[in-house]
């Protein structure tokens, strides 16, 4: 495995590539005629492997920065990122995309990869006022 600074540079290049391709797809979608739109928006709960506050902040900012995906909110207690995607064929596709970005980010950010596990089952989520002040 590459040493830490090189992993960061590698991640930045990978992210720049993602950033440019997603800019291109969103721009193309806006210019396409409405009848031929390929838009399939969805809001998906993505299980996340981030632990510290800086990791949560960075992953949600990185997701929002790539056009076409947008973090609406996070739930740290359930370890979930709620992501709005513009081109989502099915749930699994967006989840895989986001988790790949998170894996790469965490490997670049942490000196040792550490724990990359995610909750496998989606938790039962209740409305905020019922569950108390848990945002």
């Amino acid at each position: 495995m590459m040493s830490w600074p090189f992993r960061i540079i590698g991640f930045l290049f990978w992210y720049a590539k993602e950033f440019i391709t997603s800019n291109y797809t969103v721009t193309a979608e806006v210019l396409r005629l409405s009848g031929r739109s390929r838009m399939r928006p969805a809001i998906v709960a993505v299980p996340a492997a981030s632990r510290s506050d800086s990791e949560w902040t960075l992953i949600s900012a990185l997701i929002t920065l790539t056009p076409g995906t947008l973090t609406i909110t996070i739930s740290k207690e359930h370890k979930i990122l709620y992501v709005h995607g513009m081109f989502v064929e099915n749930r699994g596709q967006l989840v895989a995309e986001i988790q790949e970005m998170e894996d790469r980010m965490l490997r670049a950010m942490r000196r040792a990869p550490g724990d990359l596990t995610r909750p496998t089952e989606l938790p039962v989520v209740r409305p905020m006022d019922e569950a108390g002040e848990s945002r």
Binding site: P41, A42, I43, V44, T73, Y82, P127
Partner: peptide
Amino acid sequence: ITHIDELALT
């Protein structure tokens, strides 16, 4: 057209 909305559960 938003075909999945898992945030609606909250």
